[in-house]
């Protein structure tokens, strides 16, 4: 999986999938950072409708609880620091 977000395009390796409080939860790592994605079934149609490549809204939603971490990164900054 690849995560496109306004702050970076990163590999997302899924290490586990489960249901938590009625939400689908993907556990994994975005590069070296622990990351999880939570989606409620009711969100799926909306996500599908907005699933435009490289969309910020999707990026932020997909990052879920890891958003704060992901936002710290920057997007395509040259030869990153």
């Amino acid at each position: 999986m690849i995560i496109n977000s306004p702050v970076g395009r990163f590999p997302f390796e899924v290490t586990g999938v489960g249901l938590v409080d009625g939400r689908i939860r993907l556990e994994g790592a975005m590069g070296t950072w622990p990351t999880s994605v939570e989606v409620t079934p009711s969100e799926l149609p909306r996500i599908a409708a907005r699933l435009v490549p490289r969309s910020a809204a999707v990026g932020a939603a997909v990052l879920g609880s890891a958003a704060a971490l992901a936002l710290a990164a920057r997007r395509r900054s040259r030869r990153a620091a």
Binding site: A67, L71, A72, A73, R74, R75
Partner: peptide
């Protein structure tokens, strides 16, 4: 230049 997009999103 580097962090503003992140600040906007947070």
């Amino acid at each position: 230049s580097i962090c503003m997009a992140g600040v906007i999103l947070l």
